[in-house]
């Protein structure tokens, strides 16, 4: 039995999507950022720090989305979605997993400052501006790569792309995406994948963003 503890539109969507790409049946447990379910004792027993994702699988529980992606692709190599030790693309595969988390940490910081500190936010305009610029720089790096190929790795679609299942859908709230045409085409390719579509159907409505766009305040 596989069980994924999930919040719509969060990092756990990476895992939900990958499970669909692999055709693995998983029980989905939904949580909400607003109703206190993350702090409930049953969830604390599973995830002591109260964060998603948490994946119960093979008698184990794994918490970090990057680790889950490595573990799933390694233990289920028949799906061909990892680039395992010894593979010619091993280094870029691991780097993209790391890159995705570097980028996600900027998004998480923007989420915290724009969404969870009050309205109007007492965040520092200097920090918000810095973080948005940092996010734009990471998107620019992706834009270059995706000008040369359809997916993050040259050999084709991989689990590294599923790491973007959180990032690419959160970034447009903070950075104008018009100037990233390759990224737009990449996102369209993702959205055309049946496994992605099935995952979105199971995902649920997002509760993070109340506005279409959160601009950088005047400094």
């Amino acid at each position: 039995m596989i069980r994924l503890h999930h919040i719509p539109f969060s990092r756990s969507f990476r895992i939900l999507w990958l499970l669909e790409e692999m055709g693995l049946d998983a029980e989905l447990k939904h949580y909400s950022i607003t109703d206190g379910s993350l702090r409930a004792s049953e969830f604390k027993a599973i995830s002591p720090v109260g964060r998603v994702p948490a994946l119960e699988i093979d008698g184990l529980t794994i918490y970090e989305s990057g680790a889950i992606i490595e573990y799933l692709t390694e233990t289920r190599p028949e799906h061909g979605l990892g680039r395992l030790a010894g593979d010619a693309e091993r280094v870029p595969f691991l780097e993209w997993l790391g890159f995705a988390e570097t980028q996600a940490s900027v998004l998480a910081s923007l989420n915290m400052q724009h969404l969870f500190m009050g309205d109007p936010t007492p965040a520092s305009p200097v920090v918000l501006k810095l973080e948005a610029a940092r996010l734009a720089a990471t998107l620019k790096a992706m834009e270059r790569t995706l000008g040369e190929r359809d997916w993050l790795l040259e050999s084709g679609f991989s689990a590294a792309d599923t790491m973007m299942g959180f990032n690419l859908f959160s970034a447009p709230y903070y950075v104008e995406m018009d100037r990233f045409q390759n990224l737009a085409a990449y996102r369209a390719r993702i959205e055309a994948r049946p496994a992605y579509q099935r995952a979105r159907e199971k995902d649920g409505p997002q509760e993070f963003y109340k506005k279409e766009f959160y601009p950088v305040p005047e400094v």
Binding site: I62, Y63, G66, A67, E70, Y71, G98, E101, S124, L130
Partner: peptide, 25 residues
């Protein structure tokens, strides 16, 4: 210990991101 090893490697960045935000501030 493979799963635990991978989870801990990636957990390092869960610590790292807060540490980086605090260093910046």
């Amino acid at each position: 210990e493979r799963m635990e090893y991978l989870d801990m490697l990636h957990y390092a960045e869960s610590i790292g991101q807060h540490m980086a935000n605090l260093t910046q501030a």
